[in-house]
Design a protein around this nucleic acid. Structure first.
Lengths: 344, 344
DNA sequence: TATTAGCACTCAATTTATTAGAGTGCTAAT
DNA sequence: ATTAGCACTCTAATAAATTGAGTGCTAATA
């Protein structure tokens, strides 16, 4: 299909897209003829548009209507026509400044900021830990039948697990257990905790060897829990601002997807694992890996807090989303996020 | 206004309500005349309905339409006409059986179950701790500039806080700090940690008195964090199943409320603090304390896991919700929840 | 040869008119 | 007290008419 577009066609296509982004209505030849600085009559534009349609960049929803851009046109637009406009989003900067240091609050905040700033729905996934190495363990006696296991992993991710025990453990023994476990397990990744090691540990634990098993289980569930990914969403109701998404069927599905969050997690991690890609991805319509988003565009970005701690942000809106703004918002936010977070 | 309703009027009103619950359409006199076992002609019904309208129990959306119940009628229905029908919901039982022991997972699960079972939107608020007494503290050295504070409160609620320190602390000193803090603070509620106590602690801490301040701060934020209430939602998209709620305006507002969760938390705790009320509350229309729910009914229930650990569940649907089912679902769920949770 | 004015034609969307039907209130008969 | 019967009302559904934005094509123009 598409031969190269000459300069004029590009300009016209650009005008059609921009106009459609603003209005959400099909764009007619007369509009373009007035809108652009090309000074061409509507008839000429019509001819050109006819060509563009043939090439697959625009379509008519019905015979006597204006044109709307196809996914292909958006793709072209996103790939080549995008101009940065950082200025508008400078305001975002510094808004993160005085936030708490609790990661979940920060991320929730990021989602909110982006959602209100862009008027699209936003998804932020918490960073995943790559290696999942154990930094240290801390057992504490809660009461005679419960022990609290605090697990600190690399990147200072902390998990708590409560384990039940049959008979009380003396304070000295608690101390011994702590030392025993830490000397043997610290610095290990989950995969490295072999059955052999566990048996060795148990032998050394003497009377309380049963507890070792419990601790290992706790460790496993904690690390596993770490894997099923926190996701923060905001601005889901923004979809109602775009008629093409707001009808019941679609809205219901989208809201459901947002509530479920599972599919979103997938979306977030999808490109995340790929090679050193800190870039920005744009999925247009069917390109998105989620069914309910067939009529949306999704822009995702990957951020990295420290080596191995990477999460992602996705912004979901109608296909006619303001790609420029979204992309630069994301860029600013990511820079800001990394800056704030790395300094502490 | 309302004088007492005679038996027949009650029956007719009941029929109107039930019918409207099912269909969502205004109910005409003929329908009632066939539907009930009263064997009255439509004309008679008409007369009675005219009376009921005058009394404020039903209204006509327009002159030549059937009648729909007013909030007052729903109120009457809920207060006096409700029959239990536990059977249908037996299936709910046991579904909680094999869940994990992580509170948040369980509650999320409860929300899901109720939402799918009732087809209404569901909100579950995590239990709040009444006294906020400190069970014990545990300081652990993470690295030379960070100490992890693990805070265990009554009811085995656990919080982690990371504090920064200027100079490294030796292992012995860590141990001393731990003992010092625990001997002085255990069993205290936040309000009881006076400035006097803090100063005394600092004196005894010697070189590391600065850390004491940090720990107290950590304690404060942890307990404060405990206060701003976790809320789990599910089935928000159920509102699209009821045309009277599904129009853009309303849907958008509702979804927003659901996403925000703040207002919901309010809703949940609203009646919670009141006297030993383990009962079920029904808010109809304007009765609800949330603006966006003017056209909804809200049924809330309070559950108690152990002394002082109380949370609440709310189910939100159209005014014509199936009150019977919702109430008995809630009852079953609450029993189940308390049973499962109290046994461990 | 590229551009443009002009015009007939198309088709969704809006408006207007028409009809159908559900439901009421009232009256007179039972 | 109840009910059959009928005129009346008003929404909702359907059909018909109108509007208007936009197109494609052709012939004139630069």
């Amino acid at each position: 299909m598409q031969e190269e577009l000459d300069e004029r066609k590009k300009k016209i296509l650009h005008a059609v897209i921009r106009n459609y982004l603003e209005t959400g209505e099909p764009v007619g030849s007369r509009t373009i003829s007035k809108y652009t600085d090309l000074n061409l009559s509507s008839a000429t534009i019509r001819n050109e548009m006819s060509d563009l349609e043939e090439m697959g960049y625009i379509v008519q929803p019905h015979t006597s209507a204006g044109r709307i851009p196809t996914d292909m046109a958006y793709r072209l637009y996103v790939d080549s026509m995008m101009e940065e406009k950082d200025k508008e989003i400078e305001e975002l900067k510094g808004m993160l400044q005085r936030t708490e240091d609790k990661m979940d609050k920060v991320l929730k905040n990021v989602a909110n900021l982006l959602a209100t700033n862009t008027n699209y729905a936003t998804v932020v996934s918490a960073p995943q830990i790559k290696g999942n190495r154990l930094k240290f363990l801390q057992l504490s006696k809660v009461d005679d039948s419960h022990i609290l296991v605090v697990i600190v992993m690399e990147g200072n991710v902390i998990r708590n697990e409560m384990i039940q025990i049959d008979e009380p453990v003396s304070d000295e023994n608690m101390l011994k257990l702590n030392i025993l476990l830490n000397t043997h397990l610290n610095g290990l990744a989950l995969e490295e905790i072999s059955l052999g090691r566990i048996t060795a540990l148990k032998e050394q634990a003497g009377i309380h060897s049963g507890i070792i098993g419990n601790v290992i289980d706790a460790l496993a569930t904690a690390i596993k829990g770490e894997e099923d990914l926190e996701v923060y969403t905001s601005g889901a109701n923004n979809i109602f601002k775009y008629p093409e998404l707001a009808d019941q069927q679609r809205a219901s599905e989208l809201i459901h997807t947002f509530e479920e969050k599972k599919a979103l997690a997938k979306l977030a991690t999808d490109k995340l694992s790929e090679e050193g890609n800190t870039g920005i991805q744009v999925y247009i319509g069917e390109e998105a890996p989620i069914d309910s988003m067939k009529d949306c565009s999704v822009v995702t970005a990957t951020y990295e807090l420290e080596e191995g701690m990477r999460g992602s942000i996705a912004i979901i809106g109608p296909k006619r989303m303001d790609y420029d703004k979204v992309v630069s918002s994301l860029k600013t936010m990511m820079k800001e996020l990394e800056r704030v977070y790395k300094k502490e």
